[in-house]
Amino acid sequence: MLNGLWKLTWVEIKVFVREPMGVVGSLGIPVIMFVVLGRLFGPGVGSVSAAAAAAPPFNVAILAAIIIAIGAVLSLISIISIYREGGILKRLRATPLSPLTILGAHVVVKLLFTLLGMALLVLAGRRFFPGAMQVNLIKFAAALLLGTLSILSLGFVLASIVPTARFAQPLGAAVLYPMLAVSGLFFPLERLPPVVRIVAQAFPTTHAVSLMKGVWDGSGFAAHWGDVGALILIFAVCSAISAKVFRWE
C-alpha cells in the first residue's frame, strides 16, 4: 500500500516534470512575479528592506506563496479531469491501488512542488532582498502546506463537478482567483462589504492568507488557531463531499 503510494507519486513527479509548461508555469512565474513586485513594493510588510518605505499595499511574498498554492490546485484539477477523460483513473482503479492512494499521490506531488516553490521563493528573497525574509521558515512552510492542503481539498470538489477537461482550468480559476481577491491580502477584510466578509470566512484562501500573515509578522500559530481550525474544517468538509461526489469516469 505505502509502496504503491511511493511508486505512483514518483511516477507522477516524473510525468509532471516532463510537461513542458508544468514546472515553469507553476513555480517560475510566481517566483519571477515575487522578484518584480518585490522590487516595486518591497518583498513584504514589516520587512526591513529600504524599499518597504514605499508602503507596499500587500505582502508580496505571501502573494507569491499563495499563487504557487493556487497554481498547484489548478494543475491538480486539470490533471484529475484529464486522467478521468482519458480513462487513466479507471485503469488505475482496476489495479490493487486503493482509491485513496491514486488520488493521494497527486496531493503529495502538489505539496512537494509547493514546498519547492517556497524554497525558490526564499532563495530569490535572499538573493534580491537581503535581510527582508526574516520569517520563521518552518512555520511559514507549515502554514503554506496546511493552506495548500485545504485548497486542494476544494480542488477535488471542483474536479468532481467539472464536466470536461477543457473546462478544468477556467472553472478552477473562476473560483479560486475571486476567492483570493477577497482573502484579505490586497485590502483588509474590514473594508469589504459585510456579506462578502462573512462569505470569505468559508474560503480556505482567507484563512491561509491570515495564517501566513500571522507567521510573517511573528504572531505565529498561537494567535491564529481559528485559522488553523477553519482550514482543517474546510479540508474535512471538502474531503467528505469529494468522497460522495467524486467521479472516476
Binding site: 511516477v11 516524473k14 510525468v15 516532463r18 486522467y83 482519458g86 487513466i88 479507471k90 485503469r91
Partner: peptide, 14 residues
C-alpha cells in the same frame, strides 16, 4: 480496458 489510456509522458518501462 477497451478505452483507457495512461499518463501521456509515462515511459513504457515505468
Amino acid at each position: 480496458h477497451q478505452e483507457a489510456h495512461l499518463q501521456k509522458r509515462i515511459k513504457v518501462w515505468e
